[in-house]
Computed example of a mutant assay.
Amino acid sequence: MNKRIFLSPPHMGALEQQFVWDAFNSNYIAPVGPQVDAFEKEFSEYTGIRHCVALSSGTAAMHLALKELGVGPGDEVIGSTLTFVGSISPAVFLGADLVLVDCDRVSWNMDPDLLARELEQAKERGQLPKAVVPTDLYGQCADYDRIFAVCERFGVPVVVDAAEAMGARYGRRPGLHAGKGAKAAVFSFNGNKIMTTSGGGMLASDDKALIDRARFLSQQAREPVPHYEHTEIGFNYRMSNVLAGIGRGQLAVLDDRVQRRREIFEYYRQALEDVSGIEFMPEADYGTSNRWLTVILITPELFSADREAVRLALEAENIESRPVWKPMHLQPVFQNTHPCRVVGGEVSEDLFTRGLCLPSGTAMTTQDLDRVIHTILGAGFSS
């Protein structure tokens, strides 16, 4: 059997090991410690977002952000329907109702026109949302200028789900880092992300008070007194010192990782772009994607095989691939247990039906890439 080619495995280097050893050598193993402090400082310097707090996951970061914006039972939160569930489930934790907005075909991110229409109607109903949560899908920033402008017009804060977008930029090169300019931004360092701490996340904002409160709540809302004193309920959301050491090493080589992901995308593109029935996720002209995953669309009438047939052909060769995110409005939990309202939906449904994420790990070799390409082409020729 050929070696397994994973979708997006971690890529470790020498620095991570050194920082983790420093954590062990100092005996700071539990949450908080000098590695956490340094990671937060370096993260802020890299992204240009002034304040941040390192947490146990991106979902935890979103939970704290929405809680600090006052989201609660009876409120509405607008999110992207084409996203991972952790982007919007924290709104449900807090008792809010979800409104899910479709994406556009330019960026595959939240459609600013649909968002504007929904906010206009919400104002007429007298129930503006407590927050708008656009996702930076597969490492490409949403159209911040348009989304921020429409939300500012209605006085609604934006929390960017930048979980997949470390190293991505918005605006003229080099541009602003993903999440910059929002009320808050959420990042993930899960094991499959472009930079990882194995598990972890970051909440970042230029609002110091918001981050100070999030930090307080992430440490069980313990009051600053010698004994354990609590006047409100908090959470056990802080990142460990060991994992922060991994994050520091990953952050130091992030630019190289982004460059390699973009090279991998380009290799796939040159090999497959002229194949009938295969298209690539576009890069919007307003920014620079990190190309976390290379994503293709397969039109079966032209390619002679559908997305699932190609996925199964890859799996038969021990190659991992994955369909594009199933839109949240199609998820049983948001149709039954926590019913939501969707604005549009046709674009994201089409992308889910035809979209396939290809292996994009930065340690892939040319031979690995050729094996993936050969298998994809074979799936079409054999149908």
Rank of each mutant, 00 (worst) to 15 (best):
E16T: 07
L351E: 12
N336D: 06
L377D: 13
T337N: 10
V132A: 00
G245Q: 08
S382R: 15
W108T: 05
T231R: 14
A204F: 07
W292C: 03
S188G: 02
S89C: 04
H374R: 15
N336T: 05
L119N: 06
I246F: 15
Y138I: 00
T135L: 06
K208P: 02
G48L: 03
E315K: 10
I5Q: 08
Q121V: 06
T375N: 12
Q35T: 03
V342A: 05
S304T: 07
G13S: 12
V310H: 12
A162V: 01
A91K: 06
R213Y: 00
Q331A: 08
Y267I: 10
L377R: 11
L137Y: 00
S89L: 04
P31M: 07
L369A: 03
K208Q: 10
I233P: 06
E223F: 12
T337E: 14
R261D: 11
V156C: 03
R257F: 15
T299Q: 10
S26T: 14
I296D: 09
G201H: 00
R172D: 01
P226F: 11
L66F: 10
A163L: 00
N318R: 11
R371A: 10
G95K: 09
D37E: 08
E40V: 11
L82S: 05
A61I: 06
R213E: 02
V156K: 02
C141F: 06
D97C: 03
M328I: 00
D207F: 03
N192H: 11
V343S: 13
V275M: 13
E152D: 12
E266D: 14
E76Y: 10
M202S: 03
G58H: 00
M202N: 01
L15A: 15
E76R: 10
A116Y: 04
I233Q: 13
G175R: 06
G175T: 02
E266W: 04
T366K: 07
K3L: 13
G380S: 13
C357V: 01
A168E: 07
A142P: 04
G175H: 00
M1K: 13
E42A: 15
P10K: 14
A178I: 00
F381N: 11
E349W: 07
D111Y: 04
D370C: 10
R354D: 06
F24P: 08
D256I: 12
T375F: 07
M195G: 07
K193E: 12
E349S: 02
L119V: 03
A131Q: 08
A149D: 13
A14S: 15
G70R: 05
V71I: 02
